[in-house]
Amino acid sequence: MKGLLRWEFRKLIINQKLIWLIFATLLVQVLIGLLSKPRLYVTYNLEIYKELTAEYGGVYREEVKEEIRLKLEEYAIKKEEYQGIVTGYEMYGMGIQEEYESACFYLTEINIYESALRALLAKTDYLDSVKEHSPVLTYDLELSDYLERFEINLVSNVFCLLFSVLLFFESSISGMDQLLTPSVTGRKRIRLAKWVIAMVLCVLATSLFYLLGFLFAVTRWNFCSLDIPAVSLEYFKQWPKNLSILEALGVLFLYRQLQSLAAVALVGIWSRFSKNIIGAAVLFGVVTVIMYGIL
């Protein structure tokens, strides 16, 4: 069996150019990691939101929330004051232009800060309602967006699809079936070796691409507080409140492993009954999408 496994690997590397496939997919993964920008859709100024999140220290106990509420009240008073100046100037021509312009400027500033602060308070209230004293993460939205895109591990799926097709269909594509079937080893043992390789490569590839994605998250978005509750991240909003981010990521990792293994296994089963590669690819895609739909 050892010899068979060695040859199956050699075939993948020499005949199917596995090294190039690994290199190409890794390159794509790295490029995506480096070049992708978060797509964020919020009604408040994100930079101000982060500035405020950092200023108030992440974990929002009652006294901090009180401080935020006071700040909002202060903003409300100031807004009223500036609004008076603006209305007076615009409606009745009262006051001087410099005063009016200055009021307009501050009014805009206050509105920006106020909406960011309200978003922060809303988030804090939400987190507290789910799990008390969960910190608000400065890069919550970027991280969530990152997870939404990268946790899908698209490159890993493409890699798994390609190598499984190359592995399971290689002898029928090359026409070597007619030589291998009547050999002593026989088709059964060769198939078994292919299954072992497929499962091992699948686990390795999924882990590698997942790890790469995680490393990018850590380095780009200061993703370092792994023991805080998972619900602190927008992405894990619906997850059980007792899980930490590390645990949630671990569960996702295991599930993605299972998903890749299931998809690769189906390609293997399909190859047993059909030589249609497109059918195998479609099956792989369907299983992947269904499993993403579940989690």
Binding site: G3, W7, I14, N15, S174, M176, L179, S183, T185
Partner: peptide, 24 residues
């Protein structure tokens, strides 16, 4: 077999060694 197929990237030596493995 008729119209025998090979792994084209294998050398003749490697191909025969592979078949030796397949033949036990």
């Amino acid at each position: 077999p008729q119209n025998i197929s090979y792994y084209k990237e294998f050398s003749a030596e490697m191909f025969l060694q592979y078949m030796c493995e397949m033949k036990g």
